[in-house]
Every structure is written in structure tokens, then in C-alpha cells.
């Protein structure tokens, strides 16, 4: 199947990016921090594959190293937002009494465009990596809570859960042993999309000058630095951007592929899908 191949390619690309940045110190021929005033803004060549930046640093090396912060932020935000959102969604979906209060709070957070909420939070907290992770987690957990809640509502009256309840099974056991495993697929799909969105949002925050400290190479910071050289050294802008697109695209393809894989409708190879609540990206 065409889409299966696509998913494998996407996964391979993503793993390659992750592996390249984790092992960068072992194989990069030049240091990403090596400044050379005589080598400023050089076009791509055999020695500098992606050219050099305004300090004469090798852009290829910097793009590879920059992936560390971008991926780390993305992964941590995806995991933490998933855990918080899932817990909230489970509690809210299962216990009617807490549902109203919890969902009004979630609705309040959802009333802000995600990027804007993150921007305002970073402005208040200050722009360190930890604060960016906190801000993005706050911006993205509400969607997860909503998705999990609606998945819980769909199955909470299933017979096996009724049965567990009548036999006096503890609510905590019901939630974690009977409900959670059955709502895992939307959670996994959504967390992949959050991962992708968090990478884009981190880049946007850094680009706007409220993100990670400018001295740390991140894709957003590189794009922010390169902006004024766009006419004389377009490669400085192009390569970090391509790195973002490749990484985020591979995650979005994976999310899309997982959704299709989990969707019982697509097993019959029918092109029949319900309108999605989990559209990728904002």
C-alpha cells in the first residue's frame, strides 16, 4: 500500500534527524561554534555544504546541532501535555460531577489561539528553554484533554465497563485498566501532532525574539538571525527552514498514518472517514 511506504519513509527520516543530532559531536567535521571572520556568508560549497553564516560558522553543522533543542522541546511538550491532558480527559469523561468545572477551565484555555497563549506566557515568564516548555505545554494540553474526554464518553457506557462497575471494581482500576487502553489510539495520534506543532511554535517564538536565548542554535534562532541577510545570503534562511519542514512533515505524516491505521473504517479500504477533530497544526 502506498501510504504504508510513506509512513516508513517518514519514520526513517525522523529517526535519521534525531540520530544525526544526538551523535553530532562524533561525526561533524567542523564545530558548529567555530567562528571565522574570513568565511562570512559563503555560498554552499564542498567544504560548507549549506554555506556559512554571518560569523563564518558552518550552517550545516549548526542546523544539525540546532535540532537538539527543537526536538527536545517538542518531545517534552508532547509528553507532558499528553500526560496532563489525558489525566484531565479521563477524569472529566468518567466523572460527570467534575466534568462541567474541568471542561469550562479547558474551554477557557482553548479560547486563546495556541501560539498567542504561548507568546503571552513566555512574555510573562521570561524566555528560557524551561519556560518555553511550560508555555507550550499550557498551550497544547487543552486539546488533548478534549480529545481524550470525547473518546472516554464514547466507551464509558460499554457493557464490559458496566459489568466492571456492577461487580464493584474500583473506579481507578476501571479508568486505568479498562478505559485508558481503549482510548490510547487517539492519544497517540494527537501527541504526534502536538510534537509537530510544538516544534513549529518553538521556532515561531524564537523567530519573534521571545524564545530560546539567541546564542543557543535553534532553527527559529537561525531564521531570526538570517532574516536581514536574505537578499545576499538566501541559503542562510533556506536550510534551517527546510530542516523544520522535513522534521515536522515526517511527524505529521506519521500522525496521519497512525490515525488511518487505528481507524476501523480504513481497514475496509473504504474512503470513509468521519470529520476529524484532530486536524494537524494551527
Amino acid at each position: 500500500m502506498m501510504s504504508k511506504k510513506r509512513n516508513i519513509i517518514a519514520l526513517t527520516i525522523f529517526l535519521l534527524v534525531a540520530l544525526a543530532t544526538i551523535t553530532a559531536n562524533l561525526w561533524l567535521p567542523v564545530s558548529p561554534a567555530a567562528i571565522d571572520a574570513n568565511q562570512r556568508l559563503l555560498a554552499p560549497s564542498g567544504t560548507h555544504w549549506f554555506g556559512t553564516d554571518d560569523f563564518g560558522r558552518d550552517i550545516f553543522a549548526r542546523v544539525i546541532v540546532a535540532a537538539r533543542v527543537s526536538l527536545a522541546v517538542g518531545v517534552i511538550v508532547a509528553v507532558v501535555a499528553t500526560v496532563i491532558g489525558t489525566l484531565l480527559g479521563l477524569v472529566s469523561g468518567y466523572f460527570r460531577k467534575t466534568d462541567f468545572i474541568l471542561m469550562r477551565i479547558v474551554d477557557g484555555f482553548l479560547a486563546f489561539p495556541a501560539l498567542l497563549l504561548a507568546l503571552a506566557l513566555v512574555a510573562a515568564l521570561g524566555g528560557s528553554i524551561t519556560n518555553i516548555v511550560i508555555a507550550l505545554t499550557i498551550a497544547f494540553f487543552p486539546v488533548m484533554a478534549r480529545v481524550v474526554r470525547s473518546a472516554v464518553l464514547q466507551i464509558k457506557n460499554a457493557q464490559y465497563i458496566e459489568a466492571a462497575r456492577t461487580t464493584g471494581t474500583n473506579n481507578v482500576v476501571i479508568i486505568f485498566r479498562y478505559i485508558l487502553p481503549n482510548v490510547l489510539s487517539p492519544i497517540i495520534v494527537q501527541s504526534t501532532f502536538i510534537f509537530a506543532k510544538a516544534i513549529l511554535a518553538e521556532a515561531a517564538l524564537s523567530f519573534l525574539g521571545v524564545g530560546v536565548n539567541p546564542s543557543t542554535p535553534t532553527w527559529g534562532n537561525m531564521l531570526q538571525e538570517s532574516q536581514i541577510y536574505i537578499t545576499i545570503a538566501p541559503w542562510f534562511s533556506i536550510f534551517p527552514g527546510i530542516a523544520i519542514v522535513i522534521t515536522v512533515l515526517s511527524l505529521n505524516i506519521l500522525g496521519d498514518g497512525l490515525r488511518d491505521a487505528f481507524d476501523p473504517h480504513s481497514v475496509k479500504k473504504k474512503r470513509k472517514r468521519k470529520p476529524k477533530q484532530t486536524a494537524p497544526a494551527a
Binding site: A204, L223, Q227, I230, S237, G241, A281
Partner: peptide
């Protein structure tokens, strides 16, 4: 359409400025 949601807006803007403005 997946590519569309994977492109940072600001990067696309920079590229379009380069093409249609410069």
C-alpha cells in the same frame, strides 16, 4: 496539504518576500 501544515509561516513569508519582493 500535510506539507502546508508543516511549513513555518514566517519562513514561507521570508521566501515569498525574496521571490516577489526582491
Amino acid at each position: 496539504s500535510l506539507l502546508g501544515v508543516s511549513i513555518p509561516e514566517f519562513w514561507l513569508a521570508i521566501l515569498l518576500v525574496l521571490v516577489f519582493g526582491v
